[in-house]
Design a protein around this nucleic acid. Structure first.
Lengths: 189, 189
DNA sequence: GCTCGTATTAGTACCAGATATTATAAACAA
DNA sequence: TTGTTTATAATATCTGGTACTAATACGAGC
């Protein structure tokens, strides 16, 4: 063992990171990846307090399942809080470390993605595409903050919709965008 | 059995709805809820083609994980082909299945992310944020296509840059955007 | 009544991916 | 050499199933 980092500690640290990235791996998979026995992996998980693969998967699923479950939206970024199809939709997104740059600022495309996917969800049509968008970032968003976006359908001309999205952190406007959405196919009802 | 609805059919229909609402229930739970034996539930699931609870949970988890996954790709989305700091940058991105919706169209925020991250990369400064953007999607992009984006710095006013991005598939314009980028800190050199 | 057919329930063997525990081997330091 | 940590192995047990076979219940038709 010895000074700075025993191979055990290193492996356990990597294991933790690995499972954060991909919680779907079984102990068997992990044993192969790390070149150790299954029992060693189990001991490591025990030491680190990491639950078994099925519980990990369940946690991921439950987290995602929290919001309003109206449409099939693996598409949506963030958690849908409220929706009135064709009128408005609200979602919340927690800023995790994968979303920020090395300087701690949320990358703009993350806020854009939340807004854009919400604009898609609010339109009552099977297929919805973005035609164009104008977005403005009002202030940087930081790690750990909670962004609440609200999309409102403003006008509709045929298959074309104007959707406005406002995103706030603690009631503080951080992002504003106008999306022209197009629903090329027939409407749902 | 008889006329309109046999009790079996009714139960199976309800079972299906029930699991859509709550995929986390075991056969044991379901047997209790419906007041039938576990075996009956299993037969029903078999008839309806509904997988076991662990597979249902896994599906929910994977769907949710795919969403965050697609923007998790590090700082730059796509592969940088060429760059002249402060002038232009070119990147290429292969459209993989995580990037497309169930209808096979690339989600707009993916193209936005490629463009936006390229606009950040082209500016010669430590910290770069997007101030605002105007984007236009010219035609849908499909699974398997290869998107080449080119970002060009048009003008600069102090800490503010205007970057124009054009993305093409087979020399066919699919996306066009103007980004106002801000580099609030001191420049790199 | 009896018989046929569907629906339901029961029982058994097996599987994946674990937990929990005990035993043994290897690696190395004092 | 002796002791300690680390790794591996082996075994019993658990959950929530699949897959298959067998037994039973229930109603319809005659």
């Amino acid at each position: 063992m010895s000074q700075s980092q025993s191979p055990k500690k290193i492996r356990q640290k990597k294991l933790k990171e690995y499972l954060q990235e991909n919680p779907f791996l079984t102990d068997d998979d992990l044993a192969e990846i790390f070149g150790v026995s299954v029992q060693t992996i189990r001991l490591d998980r025990l030491a680190l307090g990491i639950p078994e693969v099925r519980k990990r998967i369940k946690s991921v699923a439950e987290e995602a399942f929290g919001g309003v479950r109206s449409l099939d939206e693996g598409e949506l970024l963030g958690k849908l809080l409220d929706i009135e199809l064709g009128q408005y939709a609200v979602s919340v997104m927690d800023i995790t470390k994968e979303m920020v740059s090395e300087h701690g600022h949320v990358r703009g495309h993350v806020l854009y993605a939340q807004a854009s996917s919400l604009a898609i969800a609010v339109i009552d049509s099977e297929i919805v595409l973005t035609g164009s968008a104008r977005v403005r970032f009002k202030r940087p968003v930081l790690l750990g903050e909670k962004v609440i976006a609200k999309a409102t359908v403003k006008t509709r001309k045929g298959a074309s919709y104007l959707v406005s999205v406002h995103s706030k952190v603690d009631n503080d406007l951080v992002f504003k965008g106008h999306f022209i959405m197009v629903a090329p196919e027939k409407k749902r009802q």
